[in-house]
């Protein structure tokens, strides 16, 4: 069971190159797609979810040609878009039963059972009879999660799924997703690095429509082993350090600016070494990409 994306490209009518020759192989388990806002993640998600056409390239999932047989992929797809609405005048239970019906669940009792189970799992069972128009943002998001998991999907695509969820609900959702991910392909699109590093066994970093790197989070982190250094500086000194070193990120720590530098050797005695994390690898890639574009 795997999803193959080959040489996928998409340019919008206004000239924006959303995807440029993207190729990925995604197997069973949780796959993290990391990228900045506007990197092309949502475009890629929508193309895989059969909602948008690509200009060129090919996507296959378990023998299904996604671009040519969208209706076949929809039979095994669970999709949670980044932004979505709901019908305000129907209840969560009614709309989920409707989605279950649409997803081909022909047995009425089974539909009721799975809807009850999913509502329970996303903690909406007590408010299942309430009209969706009265749901808060977090409750709507949980409803979206429930509909995406409906009907035994083999490919689950979740685009920025934890927006609006409190920490407990976020944990609950990730537990649920990990459990389902054991037997399915789950693509998690996000810009939260921590989510990818803790949840995914495979990942890709995407920037300006290109795949910058693909691999296991641990391998990507370890590639920078012994090359990451940090130093607290005064804010006014930032420009000087940026000119002299490869400063991939800066943040404030206890009132002082902390810069993170990537270098093959110790930049100078004032720096101290740091164990690399996925965020460093991510910022390092974005830095390199920016430099290439500037050149």
């Amino acid at each position: 069971m795997n999803l193959e994306i080959k040489n996928l490209s998409k340019t919008y009518p206004n000239g924006v190159k959303a995807l440029q020759d993207v190729s990925l192989t995604i197997g069973k388990g949780m796959f993290g797609l990391l990228g900045q806002n506007g990197a092309g993640k949502s475009t890629l998600m929508r193309i895989i979810a059969t909602l948008q056409d690509a200009d060129s390239g090919r996507i296959t999932f378990n023998g299904i040609d996604v671009l040519k047989q969208p209706e076949e992929l929809r039979k095994v797809l669970g999709y949670l878009p980044q932004e979505f609405g709901v019908y305000p005048n129907v209840s969560a239970e009614e709309l989920l039963l409707h989605v279950a019906d649409m997803k081909g669940l022909v047995n009425k009792n089974e539909r009721k059972e799975i809807v009850a189970e999913l509502l329970n799992r996303v903690n909406l069972y007590d408010v299942r009879k309430k009209h969706l128009g009265g749901y808060s943002g977090g409750m709507k998001q949980r409803f979206g999660i429930a509909q995406a998991l409906m009907g035994n999907p083999q490919l689950i695509i979740v685009d920025e799924p934890t927006a609006g969820l409190d920490p407990m609900e976020r944990n609950r959702f990730y537990n649920l997703l990990s459990e389902i991910g054991e037997n399915t392909v789950v693509i998690l699109s996000t810009h939260i690095v921590e989510d990818v590093s803790t949840l995914c066994n495979d990942m890709a970093i995407i920037g300006n429509g290109k795949v910058l790197m693909q691999g296991k989070p641990d391998d990507i982190e370890n590639a920078l082993q012994g090359k990451v250094y940090e130093l607290p500086i005064e804010k006014s000194e930032l420009l000087r350090y940026q000119e002299k070193y490869k400063v991939i990120s800066q943040r404030f720590y206890m009132g002082r600016m902390m810069i993170t530098v990537v270098s093959d050797d110790l930049p100078s005695g004032e720096f101290s070494g740091k164990a690399p994390n996925l965020e460093d690898a991510y910022f390092n890639l974005l830095y390199d990409q920016k430099k290439v574009e500037q050149a």
Binding site: K75, K103, G104, L105, V106, N107, E110, E113, I114, E117, L118, N120, R121, N123, L149, G151, N152, M168, R172, N175, L176, E179, I180
Partner: peptide
């Protein structure tokens, strides 16, 4: 009950799906 419910797997395999 939260952790208990999360521990039990979702019963998905036995669903009758037809198109």
């Amino acid at each position: 009950s939260f952790y208990k419910s999360n521990a039990s797997p979702i019963r998905l395999e036995s669903l009758t799906i037809q198109f």
